[in-house]
Design a protein around this nucleic acid. Structure first.
Lengths: 233, 233
DNA sequence: CGGACGTTTCGGCGCCCGCCGAACCGTGTC
DNA sequence: GACACGGTTCGGCGGGCGCCGAAACGTCCG
């Protein structure tokens, strides 16, 4: 994969829209993505094939549907890195992308509260969780974040465990900080962030609302967050 | 900076050639880059302006020359990340970019031996330095690399010091591993890697050869590497 | 079996953008 | 002051590529 080839794939508005939509970590059908990006199904089909051929996306066919998702966490962080590259000063013209409709505005505020970032938590909830994990000594942040011994036993008590390859060379980093670009603060990614979100979803502490990346914290979730991390929202 | 805009800048062969050339960490003039990428000076001028406007490059004018360099380490890592994205299997056609001329071949072998990677060491030398730093306990690698206490005092004895902002939020990471794509192994980047290379250059342990990224280890350098790190080449 | 639907392939249109050469400007040199 | 040289601006050319609509294919359902 050459630099120009990869960059060229992300340089097109349609393909970029696909990728950012898929940042919610879920699998979308080709048709959903086509409607989302407002292009003809034929166009979506072509562009998806290219993204798949390049190894950015993975596909899974089920009957007459073609499900598509990001190929892995590396792809997600790559896209996040590109998308969060600091904008030089002179773009002060239109600071926010213009709320547009009311529907759009409420969606954005819901996502600011709590949302997914590929496979972990983001938004104010994600930042609060990180702060709590730091305060309780589950995660240290000396020259880059790391899971502490206390963090490991906390995770074990929770009944969750990290994938075996996490942290080993070639494997996924155990904990990564991910710049949250609504909050302009960090939240927790990496294998730890992922397993945290996974359990929260499994135990119905959070649930997805709408078709986007927004999340809602359930009453059970509020209780769990308070008892396990001391987080109050 | 939108994702598509940034990616679009790197999607063009000419602009990409500029960026990868600038990965040597030095400042090039517009004309040098034009010749390097084999385009007319006028073309180079236009493209450089765009890269600068986007904040990827920084310029410095001296007399009738326009010097240009990468805007910072973040840009370098961004480009490295994109360039080192794993290529899917079916590109097995032409594995290496065809040596072409003899001149080209000797340049490549020199760069494989020792070269710069933006502002730190790479190639076999870079990998050897990392291995030595790990073996001597200067750097640990538990869930991501970190500078140890011993590493800090080693650096102090050397008479070198890290920039004050290194490791703090918003600052540069103290030590980063950077996948070396000739060696397919990691070498040391980050503030530590940079200060290491800086002192090596200041004390003439290594010197640049040719106009590219290749380095030569001086006799003084061989001695220093052996005494300080136990590295023999 | 027939119709609806999601997806794919193909041909063709239109636009964007990278490229160059020519003219021009400012700087350094003889 | 004349000339050389690096860089920039501008107009115009050409190719690549994203888009669509039409037609075809496969799957699911009645």
């Amino acid at each position: 994969m050459s630099l120009t080839h990869l960059a060229g794939l992300l340089a097109d508005p349609t393909r970029a829209a696909f990728c950012t939509a898929l940042l919610d970590g879920r699998a979308w059908t080709a048709g959903e993505l086509a409607r989302h990006a407002r292009v003809a199904p034929s166009t979506a089909s072509e562009q998806l094939s290219r993204l798949i051929a390049a190894g950015l996306l993975a596909e899974e066919r089920q009957g007459r549907h073609r499900y598509v998702r990001l190929a892995g966490p590396e792809v997600a962080t790559l896209i996040e890195d590109l998308a969060s590259f600091p904008v030089p000063a002179e773009s002060a013209g239109r600071s926010s992308p213009a709320p547009g409709s009311l529907r759009e505005a409420t969606r954005m505020s819901a996502e600011a509260r709590a949302r997914t970032c590929y496979d972990h938590l983001a938004g104010r909830l994600g930042v609060a969780v990180r702060d709590a994990a730091l305060a309780r000594g589950l995660v240290a942040d000396e020259d880059g974040p790391a899971l502490t011994g206390r963090g490991r036993s906390w995770l074990a008590e929770l009944g969750a465990e990290l994938p075996a390859r996490a942290g080993r060379p070639g494997g996924r980093p155990v904990v990564r900080t991910c710049l949250d670009w609504t909050e302009r603060r960090s939240h927790l990614g990496g294998a730890f962030g992922a397993v945290l979100f996974r359990t929260a979803l499994d135990r119905s502490w959070v649930e997805r609302i709408g078709t986007g990346r927004a999340l809602r914290v359930t009453p059970d979730g509020e209780r769990a967050l308070r008892d396990l991390l001391g987080v109050t929202l």
